[in-house]
């Protein structure tokens, strides 16, 4: 999938690693710079559309993805792009392409 399709929407998405505890949002995209990581995350339910709730950011990042609670290191969190809930609610698109 080429980069650049609907890039404007990714501008608003922020990496999970930059969110504060308590933040709620929806996964927009998982970067595929490392395919095995993206596959593992997908198998755990971290895929576009999944709801995210950040629970804790120190000493490790802990978040809830739908009903699964996950702990990840920062590098992993950087590759998960999140659309924050309040902004997302009004402007969500049905599909991007």
């Amino acid at each position: 999938m080429p980069l650049g399709c609907s890039i404007s929407r990714f501008d608003e998405a922020r990496p999970l690693s930059s969110l504060e505890p308590g933040a709620i949002g929806v996964v927009v995209r998982v970067l595929r710079d490392r395919a095995d990581r993206a596959d593992r995350l997908a198998a755990l339910g971290v895929t576009p559309g999944a709801r995210i709730h950040v629970l804790q950011t120190f000493p490790g990042i802990v978040f809830q993805c739908d009903e699964t609670e996950l702990a990840v290191e920062r590098t992993v969190a950087r590759s998960i792009l999140i659309d924050i809930a309040d902004r997302a609610s009004g402007t969500r698109l049905a599909t991007s392409t």
Binding site: M1, P2, C5, S6, R9, F10, V26, V28, R29, V30, R32, A35, A38, T47, P48, G49, A50, R51, D83, A85, A88, S89, R92, L93, A94, T95, S96, T97
Partner: peptide, 12 residues
């Protein structure tokens, strides 16, 4: 709330 977000943006 997660209904119908852009799936086509998931590459690969």
């Amino acid at each position: 709330p997660s209904g119908g977000i852009g799936f086509a943006s998931l590459p690969g």
